[in-house]
Amino acid sequence: MFNTTNDTNGLRVALVTGGSGGIGRAVVKKLSDAGFAVAVQYAGNKAKADTLVAEIVEKGGKAVSVGGDVADEQAMKAIFDTVEKEFGGIDVVVNTAGIMLLSPIAEINLDDLDKMHRTNIRGTFVVSKQAARRVRKGGAIINFSTSITRTQFPNYGAYAASKAAVESMTLILARELRGKDITVNAVAPGPTATPLFLDGKDEKLIDHLAKSVPLERLGQPEDIAETVAFLAGPARWVNGQIIFTNGGMA
Rank of each mutant, 00 (worst) to 15 (best):
F230Y: 10
S212A: 12
A229S: 13
G190E: 08
A210N: 09
D223H: 05
K163A: 03
V184L: 06
W237Y: 15
A188P: 00
N3A: 14
R217Y: 14
F153D: 10
D50E: 15
D112T: 09
A165R: 04
F230H: 11
V228A: 04
T183G: 00
E226N: 02
G89Y: 13
N143F: 08
N155F: 14
G24C: 01
M169P: 02
A26D: 02
L198D: 06
V93L: 05
F2V: 10
I142P: 00
N120T: 10
A188H: 02
L15V: 03
H208R: 14
G157D: 09
A63E: 13
H208Y: 15
G88H: 10
V16F: 03
D207A: 12
V27F: 05
R118V: 13
A49Q: 02
F2R: 04
V135H: 10
R236Y: 15
V92D: 08
D81S: 04
F87N: 03
T124Y: 15
N185A: 07
T170Q: 03
G44C: 07
L218Y: 04
L101Q: 09
Y159A: 12
L173R: 04
E216F: 03
A235W: 11
G233P: 03
L113F: 14
F197E: 00
K48D: 13
A39T: 12
G247C: 05
A232K: 03
T8S: 07
T146E: 01
G233C: 09
L171G: 01
Q241W: 14
K85A: 15
G19K: 05
G248K: 04
G233Y: 14
G139L: 11
G89H: 12
V27Q: 00
H208I: 13
D72P: 00
L102C: 07
L101V: 09
T245G: 05
V213R: 02
T82V: 06
E84C: 02
G123M: 14
L209Q: 08
G139N: 08
S162E: 08
A165Y: 11
D69N: 01
N6S: 14
P214F: 15
Y42S: 02
I224Y: 01
P234Q: 13
L198R: 02
V126E: 10
A63P: 00
F153S: 05
A210D: 11
I224L: 00
K30L: 12
V135Y: 08
G248L: 11
V238Q: 12
A174D: 09
E58G: 07
L110C: 11
M249S: 09
F80P: 00
L215S: 07
L11T: 09
P154E: 11
L101I: 14
T96G: 01
L198W: 03
K59V: 11
T17D: 05
S20G: 07
D91A: 02
L171I: 08
V166H: 05
V127K: 06
T194D: 01
K30Q: 13
Q74A: 04
A75C: 06
Y159M: 03
S65W: 15
A78I: 12
N120H: 05
N6E: 14
T4D: 15
G190L: 04
K137T: 13
H117E: 15
E58C: 09
A14R: 03
K180S: 08
D207V: 06
G98F: 07
D81F: 09
T170L: 06
E55Y: 05
M169Q: 03
N246S: 01
E58P: 02
W237G: 01
K115H: 12
V64E: 15
Y42M: 05
A47R: 06
F230R: 08
I206T: 07
L209T: 10
S103R: 10
